[in-house]
Design a protein around this nucleic acid. Structure first.
Lengths: 154, 154
DNA sequence: GTATAATAGATCAGTAAAGGTCAGGGAACA
DNA sequence: TGTTCCCTGACCTTTACTGATCTATTATAC
């Protein structure tokens, strides 16, 4: 027995397939098509289009707003990022963070420059005034990996 | 999903590009061309042609009035970075941060990828759920600019 | 020369048009 | 009988757009 969420998921995957690696939708339109409240679209996106399942969501509010569904590549690099993401958890020590960056660099997923910038952001650069907790660092790493995953083909 | 404001922005950038570093427009004419109220032109100028993005607006009212859009020249990259750093001060709003990133990108000081990563770090990406304050954002931007400055040669 | 009419841009509050969040109700299932 | 998944709706934030009204500048009438 398929639920409404299943049908919405199917529909979104179909139009994504047609469009290629990215598709833009209007939340209200999709909600209308399936005669449900708009927030159900968020539910479907949150539960079925996660990075672990190979998707990333970006969006904008306001007039002309949109929701963008991006299919992540399934190449070795993209898979490595996803592996790291699922491994971060909710705490990340400075040493762990450094190791992650080194791994990303050696796999040619990020450049040396990008690594330096990320190090600052994670509070593991001498420049950084150390107010960063391990929990905060984990969240920051998670978000940066998410954006990097979108930028990584292969 | 482009809005009318996006089209007006594009148009203004085109005629600015054609004209060089400065272009003069009549607000009423542009409003007419896009079939909108004149104040929408102000909206576009305020949101898309800010000093942080490297533009200055001058205008005169009354008969023969005009609006002048001036693109600020960057000079050497190192100088632009120093300039931005001194302007950041100890508070940086999300909008200012976005505008700075755009200027850095337009000036080829950072790549689009680096811009996306920095946006996450600054908490101005929808991905960022944590509540970043303007003071915190300013400090983060200072540190990242400092790193970028080291990595940038002419 | 001064008053006033005409012209053009500035301002700002208000409205519309998106998407986000979160607590909670109900259904299915272990 | 609890847990997990589905779904809703009230309320919030962000961005775009409009219109009434104000201010500055120039042209013209006397």
């Amino acid at each position: 027995m398929l639920t409404l969420s299943d049908y919405i998921e199917k529909y979104l995957k179909e139009i994504l397939e047609e469009a290629g690696e990215m598709v833009e939708i209007r939340r209200g339109d999709v909600a209308n098509r399936f005669h449900c409240v708009p927030s159900q679209i968020n539910y479907v996106l949150e539960t079925r289009f996660t990075p672990e399942k190979g998707f990333v969501i970006e969006s904008r509010r306001g007039g002309g707003g949109y929701i963008r569904i991006i299919r992540l590549s399934n190449g070795p690099r993209a898979r490595l990022i996803r592996g790291l993401m699922s491994h971060v958890g909710d705490a990340l020590t400075p040493k762990e963070a450094r190791d992650y960056l080194e791994r990303l660099r050696e796999s040619d997923i990020i450049t040396a420059r990008e690594g330096r910038i990320m190090a600052v952001a994670l509070g593991i650069d001498p420049r950084s005034t150390t107010r960063a907790t391990d929990a905060w660092r984990a969240a920051m790493m998670q978000r940066m990996l998410s954006v990097v995953s979108v930028l990584t083909r292969e």
